[in-house]
């Protein structure tokens, strides 16, 4: 390694600087503010009172918090797997010539554009026991015994919400996969066909390896989305009920912050959640992005 008197190349740093500045000011500073407040008892209004680690010990001893963490993990894993498998399959179909290709590509994307208010009304009515579409359909095909308390049975409600989340974001992930698949050079497939590899073999040996970085993006987005931004969808669908069966970390943290006026505990729980996501996020990143040719 030559250190010597070589001038430091500022260009890469300058390129990173705007992002670092913005990010530090509006994400990291508030984050440290939250971390700092997690050592205080604070209702959001009156003078904060320093209580050391009490918010953390209260959170750790809060069984509802751990229940919500458990739901968050189930939710995150289900959503990530289902979204990615379905989106991949849809993209795999839509990347080739099918009738009404553009129409399908646009149509399946539409739920992404819908507001959560509409989703809340729509899906709770789709699941409705008296006039809901699902139960009407099951009655129509004579499968009344399949009718369940979609949103009212504590054993099922979480899965019903997962379905809505998958439905909402499927189109987005499909588009990302489509973009990735479009970018794979046709030459690979031609060469494979000449070698006599069939569709399935091509999928395993060409499409999936070539899509590695797209898969990383998609998995990370759905995983962290389920940890850090599933508040809206759970809130409009069930608000955490019935009997806390759909309570996820974010709904519980927001309840603590704004309904129970316990900002300190909410911040402590956010920090615990962050620690979990941090560990999982980095493990996932390390496993999945080892081999993209650039050292990071």
């Amino acid at each position: 390694m030559r250190i010597g008197k070589r001038k430091i190349d500022t260009f890469p740093y300058l390129m990173c600087l705007p992002a670092i500045i913005l990010f530090t000011i509006f994400i990291i500073l508030p984050f440290f503010d939250g971390l700092y407040m997690s050592f205080f008892k604070w209702d959001g209004f009156s003078e904060p009172e320093f209580i050391g680690l009490r918010n953390y010990s209260n959170s750790i001893h809060d069984s509802l918090f751990w229940l919500s963490m458990k739901h968050t993990f189930i939710y995150a894993i289900l959503v990530t797997v289902i979204k990615n498998v379905l989106a991949f399959l849809l993209a795999y179909i839509l990347v080739r010539k099918v009738p009404f290709q553009t129409l399908f590509r646009t149509g399946i994307y539409l739920p992404v554009t819908l507001s959560y208010v509409v989703i809340g009304v729509l899906w709770s009515w789709v699941y409705n026991p008296t006039f809901g579409l699902i139960n009407s359909f099951l009655t129509m095909i004579g499968k009344e015994e399949w009718i369940l308390g979609w949103l009212s049975d504590p054993d099922i409600a979480l899965y019903s919400v997962v379905v809505v989340d998958v439905w909402k974001w499927l189109g987005y992930h499909m588009v990302l996969y489509l973009a990735g698949m479009q970018a794979i050079s046709k030459d690979y497939y031609e060469a494979a066909s000449i070698d006599g590899a069939n569709g399935f073999k091509q999928l395993i040996h060409i499409t999936i390896p070539q899509l590695n970085s797209t898969i990383v993006v998609n998995v990370l987005m759905s995983l962290t989305g389920a940890f850090a931004s599933n508040y809206d969808i759970v809130n409009v669908m069930t608000g955490g009920g019935p009997a806390n069966s759909t309570e996820v970390s974010l709904t519980y943290i927001v309840s603590n912050a704004f309904r129970y006026s316990n900002m300190g505990k909410a911040n402590a729980m956010s920090m615990i959640l962050f620690a979990f996501v941090f560990v999982f996020g980095f493990i996932q990143l390390r496993i999945m992005s080892r081999e993209d040719g650039y050292d990071v």
Binding site: I27, P30, F31, D33, G34, L220, T224, F227, A228, S229, Y231, L250, I253, V254, A257, A266, N267, S270, L273, F274, V277, F278, G281
Partner: peptide, 8 residues
């Protein structure tokens, strides 16, 4: 990616 911004 890991910071739940909504809470902050």
């Amino acid at each position: 990616i890991m910071i739940p911004t909504g809470v902050l």
